[in-house]
């Protein structure tokens, strides 16, 4: 039973980690495309609005869809003057309460706040206001729903992990989860 739960929560984290690692390659695409855009503007005196808007898309997808991965890797910054000195159990308690009272409400709030805007954009087939810009603005806006969904997945997985740590289960040692 325990190991089945562990496996399920491990797979939840796996989704966020794989997503984060995939979108991390967008940084390379951003660097290359932006450089090509500059070269084009220097050499041919023309730059593409489509390319510069697509870079905005990649940038947004990168930092939003990797937010849960960053959480999984424990790289969201903390004010750790006290936290750093806490016992494993106390840290687990902080993370347990933080996930329940802060992370999950914030994620659900962002989904609630975004829903009507994303669906409006979808309904009217919104495109960029700039001539020759990106189509399908609702996908870009939709990242603001996917980001908190991934955070919820990671949050549930962290709830389980921190609960085990807090109650003293030994089978979860690695706070950073999936490697």
């Amino acid at each position: 039973m325990k190991s089945l739960l562990s496996k399920i929560f491990y797979q939840l984290s796996n989704i966020t980690v794989i997503t984060g690692q995939l979108v991390s390659w967008l940084t390379v695409a951003m660097v290359v495309l932006l450089t090509l855009n500059i070269l084009a503007s220097w050499l041919f005196k023309s730059s593409s609005i489509l390319v510069s808007e697509s870079i905005t898309w990649m940038h947004s997808a990168n930092f939003l869809l990797a937010a849960a991965y960053t959480l999984n890797r424990n790289e969201h910054v903390r004010v750790d003057i006290f936290y750093a000195k806490m016992s494993v159990r106390a840290k687990a308690l902080v993370d347990l309460l933080g996930t329940l009272l802060l992370l999950l409400p914030v994620s659900l709030f962002i989904i609630w706040a975004s829903w009507s805007y994303v669906s409006l954009s979808w309904r009217i087939g919104e495109v960029s206001a700039e001539a020759g810009g990106m189509p399908a603005t609702y996908i870009l806006k939709g990242f603001l729903i996917v980001m908190p969904l991934l955070l919820v997945l990671e949050g549930i997985s962290q709830l389980y992990r921190n609960f085990c740590l807090f109650t003293g289960e030994n089978n979860i040692q690695d706070k950073t989860g999936v490697q």
Binding site: M86, L97, G98, L101, L102, L103
Partner: peptide
């Protein structure tokens, strides 16, 4: 913030409470 949960979610979460 002093409790040590990540800053991003502490700022937004406290405000939402």
């Amino acid at each position: 913030l002093l409790a040590g949960y990540p800053v991003a979610f502490s700022l937004a979460g406290t405000a939402l409470i």
